[in-house]
């Protein structure tokens, strides 16, 4: 699972008001290279939750993203490369996504998070 997918997922447990972002627990991560698409990144920059991406990439062991970012940075190739790498090339393979409010863990196996809820959580 890429961090772009992580960036849009929230804890969906009944009663949870602030389920975003899910904390990441990493048992195994992999890196897969993909071609950089500048227009896509510029478009995504306006949509992603930057803080969540920074924290997620740090928990995956990648700490090159700056704490704060604004759209003027998109002119820098170096910044684009880092953004690209964090957003699309880091994959959580094994581990868990953790609800920030309740601590409930959603397991991730073979890169697939299981966000199914128990009956009493719906």
């Amino acid at each position: 699972m890429r961090l772009l997918t992580h960036n849009m997922l929230s804890s969906n447990i009944k009663g949870v008001t602030n389920g975003f972002p899910l904390r990441i627990e990493v048992e195994k991560m992999v890196e897969k290279e993909v071609e950089l698409n500048m227009d896509f990144l510029k478009n995504m920059f306006a949509k992603v939750e930057w803080r969540a991406l920074v924290e997620a990439s740090r928990s995956m062991g990648y700490s090159e993203l700056p704490d704060e970012a604004d759209s003027s940075m998109l002119d820098s190739d170096e910044f684009l490369r880092k953004f690209h790498h964090a957003l699309l090339e880091l994959h959580l393979e094994e581990g868990a996504l953790v609800c920030p409010e309740t601590g409930r863990k959603f397991p991730v196996n073979k890169g697939i998070p299981n966000m199914l809820l128990h009956e009493d959580e719906v």
């Binding site: 699972m1 960036n7 997922l9 929230s10 975003f20 890169g111």
Partner: peptide, 17 residues
């Protein structure tokens, strides 16, 4: 990417997709 979930209880951030 894949996510196992019930679409009816899916909570996704708006408009990233």
């Amino acid at each position: 990417d894949f996510v196992q979930c019930d679409i009816r209880n899916l909570r996704l951030s708006d408009r990233t997709i």
